[in-house]
């Protein structure tokens, strides 16, 4: 941030094809996200929303085109601490009990050295991340004892623990009750005010709408709308689905329908 020249885009896809096993789900994607933007990425199941995120994070291969993160080609990008990721999948509970603080700490590891104890700054960052999502009183609780919405907030805290410049959230409100959605919206507003760039994947903006500065609508692997939130196509128009808790579209091939047409 001390760079005097204008900051490069946080994310810059150029003619990018992203997919699995050689088959693109998203084709010819051009997308630039500037620092400080709060982008809502909307689209029905299978439209390629999660694929874009997975491509961004290096979890799905780039089959063509290019992607630059903070001005650096993805192949050479190593500064993953600048990117915080909140997955859609509910994977916080393993076979062994672990506390909220233990799970959140695993988000801090990109800034920690192995074989050394956590520094004071690391503990402070973890505590702060837990506080931001409003779980300070549950920090020592086994994460499996939290409600679904609280677990989602713990995953956001995990992403925040590395103090990222870009926060990517995949369906953070799916299956989350209204009260927890409000807390999530407040959390994102706080982060946005602090200058964090946010990419939010969702079926519907709901309580997040006031925070969003730019909306992208995706259908069949292509961006069909890019602009202010209020003009975005309503999800109930033209057959947009509205299913909560469905699995991400990875590998379903549902996003293929519009490609090559």
């Amino acid at each position: 941030m001390s760079d005097p020249s204008p900051a490069p885009p946080a994310v810059a896809f150029e003619a990018a094809d992203i997919g699995y096993e050689g088959v693109p789900v998203v084709a010819g994607l051009d997308l630039e996200i500037r620092p400080g933007e709060v982008v809502g990425l909307l689209g029905p199941n299978g439209s390629g929303k999660s694929t874009i995120v997975r491509g961004l994070l290096g979890l799905a291969p780039l089959l063509g085109g290019s992607l630059r993160l903070f001005g650096e080609d993805r192949q050479r990008f190593r500064d993953w601490r600048r990117v915080g990721y909140v997955p859609q999948r509910q994977t916080v509970t393993g076979g062994v009990p672990s506390t909220v603080r233990e799970v959140v700490t695993s988000g801090r590891l990109t800034r920690v050295r192995p074989f050394q104890p956590l520094r004071v700054a690391d503990r402070a960052a973890v505590d702060h991340a837990i506080e931001v999502v409003g779980l300070a009183d549950r920090a020592g609780a086994p994460i499996a004892t939290l409600s679904g919405g609280q677990q989602r907030r713990a995953l956001i805290a995990r992403a925040l623990a590395s103090e990222p410049d870009l926060l990517v959230l995949d369906e953070p409100t799916a299956g989350v009750d209204a009260a927890n959605q409000e807390v999530l919206a407040d959390t994102l507003a706080t982060l946005a005010a602090a200058g964090t760039t946010i990419l939010l994947i969702t079926h519907e903006l709901g309580p997040m709408a006031p925070v969003i500065t730019r909306t992208l609508a995706l259908r069949a692997g292509r961006i069909v709308y890019d602009g202010p939130a209020q003009d975005a196509p309503d999800e109930h128009d033209d057959g947009w689905h509205h299913h909560h808790g469905e699995p991400p579209e990875r590998g379903t091939g549902l996003g293929l329908s519009g490609i090559g047409s």
Partner: peptide, 11 residues
């Protein structure tokens, strides 16, 4: 705990 997340965070 979460191998995919570990991958995404560059571990």
């Amino acid at each position: 705990n979460d191998e995919e997340y570990a991958l995404a965070s560059g571990l």
